[in-house]
């Protein structure tokens, strides 16, 4: 990933900052410039919105043939999470066994290393998810 691209997305990756359409109230993540529902009505009405960071598992899978970047984590669990605000994100589920995961499981975002450019290069950080019942007070 090029440095400027990673840098541009830091707010989204670290803090889960999306946008809220002040015309219809819909939340979008990643951020969009225009609300696809309200179109030009939403012009200049898209404001920053920070996701609370909690949501639940919609569906999930176990990855045995990892991307080389994630080989030390293999096998790992990827999931689609529906955040409390309704937006859906794809992310790693960490600190959890595949057998423990179930649809509807409450999860919370936590910052982890997503990868690195190279051993000498930039480290990429961003959100992954962990179960709320073992990592917080549900």
């Amino acid at each position: 990933m090029a440095i400027p691209r990673f840098w541009r997305e830091i707010r989204q990756r670290y803090k889960g900052i999306g946008v809220e359409c002040k015309n219809c109230g819909e939340i979008y993540f990643p951020p969009r410039d225009i609300c696809p529902e309200c179109r030009r009505e939403s012009y200049k009405k898209m404001e920053d919105y920070e996701l609370k960071g909690t949501g639940e598992v919609v569906t999930y899978t176990k990855v045995h043939e990892p991307h080389p970047e994630f080989k030390d984590l293999s096998p790992y669990v990827m999931a689609i999470i529906e955040m409390d605000e309704g937006v859906r994100l794809t992310g790693h589920l960490v600190d959890v066994d595949y057998e423990q995961v179930e649809r509807g499981m409450k999860v919370e975002a936590s910052m982890r290393k997503l990868g690195e450019e190279s051993p000498e290069g930039l480290i990429y950080y961003g959100y992954k998810f962990w179960p709320l019942d073992t990592h917080g007070k549900d």
Partner: peptide, 11 residues
């Protein structure tokens, strides 16, 4: 874990 370091622990 391989995806944890001082940044993630501190955060």
């Amino acid at each position: 874990s391989p995806d944890e370091d001082v940044v993630t622990i501190s955060t």
